[in-house]
Design a protein around this nucleic acid. Structure first.
Lengths: 230, 230
DNA sequence: TAGTGGTCTAGACCACTCA
DNA sequence: GAGTGGTCTAGACCACTAT
């Protein structure tokens, strides 16, 4: 009797949408109708339809019914790479080298970002991430030491700041920005590439409950690609 | 009595996870226990926990119980930009100019990608997307005309190939790859930038039920950023 | 005002897997 | 074998909103 699962109904509905059985922007039968058609409870159909709605394929409104989405907003979901795992996933040996590790007053842009009062210092870190001892990515990071003072005692030579933070403040929220930039002299030498090379950069700021933790920028060696599916 | 919604429970559980009430990798009380604690049905707790599992914050196993995720895989979700909307979202006027529109035999790499038999032609399109009449992005695309022959009669001067395809084959699946490249001469002149500039590129291949529809590469003008949240 | 989706409940059975 | 999550059901009430 597992044939009437919400999964199968979701699949069936997806097929009917793809086949064009219901026009773009058109109305889909009500939950109760579909339930009797599929011979199951309304709750089961509801669950299938909610999944489709979450995937952006249909739009649902009370009393308005369920409609096939006109302009399906393509959503890509992907995992923010964790460097160590990324490197190990293709069989490399991960390592990192700390270039800078100093408490100092952050520049205004960073201070604003982390909401640090003027005059207060923050931890500035520069790290080169290695794959098989060769530079893989370069990271520049500021940590709000008022939020996580323990980091000053962390063995950052053994565990990367990123991993330490993930283990200490695992469930923070964050913003991510992807962009492409030309490598300047500093970045080029850090990751061993030529000045001007196109670099894939990820900016990330994370906080926990209104308290800003850290902001970082990661520069990947040229040729880096971020994959996803939709 | 709306206070015992699965939303509120999800929120409450999230808070308890963030506060460290349950250790990383630690066990969370069983659904039945939580249900009696919150004074609701097990189904309600189940829904909340499933949402947290989908968000990657907990891992659930039958008999094994629910555990706080050790290394939360940060998932970013975003909407694949639709150029017209992207341009209009910052108040620009969208337009596009077709540079190439020809049926021809695709190079081997594309042929493999679209699974087109040797010798068969495909539609090759080059489009410059404009914001306020200025180049915004450059698109290179191949369309499998065996899958969507109607595109040969589409008014591509009025509607961009992308929009036409979305309206015609709206519910396709696809792969997306983001990368950074240096602009070559052709791209630089197409989007009005300097050769060597760092360009944000998006590759995208879409298909419907094992039938390949199109593959495209989009080059954004320098300075482009893709934002997300996690 | 009537119809539709959103949600909760109480109970049930099953599938998985840990011990 | 026993405990846990996965899921379906049948019924109920509510919230929203199109008409």
């Amino acid at each position: 009797m597992t044939s009437i699962s919400h999964h199968s109904i979701r699949q069936s509905l997806l097929g009917r949408i793809q086949s064009g059985e219901w026009a773009l922007g058109g109305l889909i039968p009500a939950e109760t109708d579909l339930a009797s058609e599929y011979g199951c409870a309304r709750g089961t159909v509801n669950r299938a339809l909610q999944a489709l709605a979450e995937a952006g394929l249909v739009v649902r409104k009370r009393k308005g019914g369920t409609r096939v989405c006109q302009m399906p907003v393509r959503q890509a979901k992907f995992e923010i790479p964790v460097l160590r795992e990324q490197v190990e996933s293709f069989g490399g040996i991960y390592g990192h080298r700390i270039i800078a590790n100093k408490l100092k007053t952050p520049p205004p842009s960073i201070r604003t970002h982390l909401r640090i009062p003027g005059g207060v210092k923050a931890l500035h870190l520069q790290t080169v991430h290695l794959a098989d001892d060769k530079p893989y990515a370069f990271e520049e990071r500021w940590v709000n030491t008022q939020a996580v003072p323990e980091i000053l005692n962390a063995p950052l030579d053994k565990i990367s700041a990123n991993e330490w933070l993930v283990k200490t403040v695992p469930f923070s929220s964050g913003d991510v920005v992807f962009s492409a930039i030309n490598a300047d002299k500093k970045i080029a030498s850090a990751i061993g590439t030529d000045e001007g090379a196109a670099i894939f950069a990820i900016d990330r700021t994370t906080w926990l409950e209104d308290e800003f933790i850290t902001t970082m920028r990661l520069y990947y060696k040229e040729g880096f690609q971020l994959h996803s599916h939709l």
